[in-house]
């Protein structure tokens, strides 16, 4: 119980602090403690923790979406706890979680733009350096935006489609 609370509030911290600041802080912890991680690894680590913080919520919501009657029925038919999780909770919860999980994945994909702050050259940072040379901000940024859009839009559509398909008829 205590552990649950502690984990919950720890993850809450990662959801309540701007990612930009998390990048900066973890990056400086990396240097203060001489961990010797590359900035790329730091960026991945921060994004992973951040994603985990949100994903926990999604999974929790998914598990809670399974009616306890259903689960009790399963258990009274002699399923073990693990069997109950695997055979009953998982198939129902995954339909609730997956569309949101796709949304989360896309969110993280877009949040990668923030890693430019700790010195990684990604899409947005390289557009900035092209802008410096061409002095055509609108054109270059529009192309960068289009690239983000093309990466994100099809997957977002897939998410919406799954959500529609799996939402019980109402």
């Amino acid at each position: 119980m205590v552990l649950q609370r502690a984990a919950g509030s720890l993850l809450d911290v990662f959801r309540s602090i701007p990612l930009l600041i998390q990048f900066v802080l973890i990056n400086s912890v990396n240097s203060l403690l001489r961990l010797g991680l590359s900035t790329f690894k730091v960026a991945c680590l921060v994004l992973a923790i951040y994603t985990a913080a949100y994903c926990t919520e999604l999974v929790r919501a998914g598990i809670l979406s399974v009616p306890s009657i259903t689960r009790r029925a399963g258990r009274s038919l002699g399923l073990t706890y693990l069997q109950d999780l695997r055979e009953i909770v998982f198939p129902i919860a995954v339909k609730v979680v997956l569309p949101n999980w796709i949304g989360l994945t896309l969110g993280v994909m877009k949040d990668t733009s923030l890693v430019l702050w700790i010195g990684i050259t990604e899409l947005l940072r390289s557009s900035q350096s092209i802008v410096t040379r061409t002095q055509e901000p609108l054109l270059v940024l529009a192309i960068a935006g289009l690239i983000y859009f093309l990466m994100s839009f099809p997957v977002a559509r897939l998410g919406t489609m799954l959500e529609k398909k799996w939402t019980p008829n109402d």
Binding site: L124, S152, F153, A156
Partner: peptide, 22 residues
């Protein structure tokens, strides 16, 4: 679709520097 499929950082940058060209 534009708001949801591009990064917020990009959006803010675009408003400031991109719209400036217009």
């Amino acid at each position: 679709e534009l708001a949801r499929n591009t990064p917020a950082l990009f959006q803010v940058y675009m408003v400031y520097f991109g719209l400036g060209s217009l």
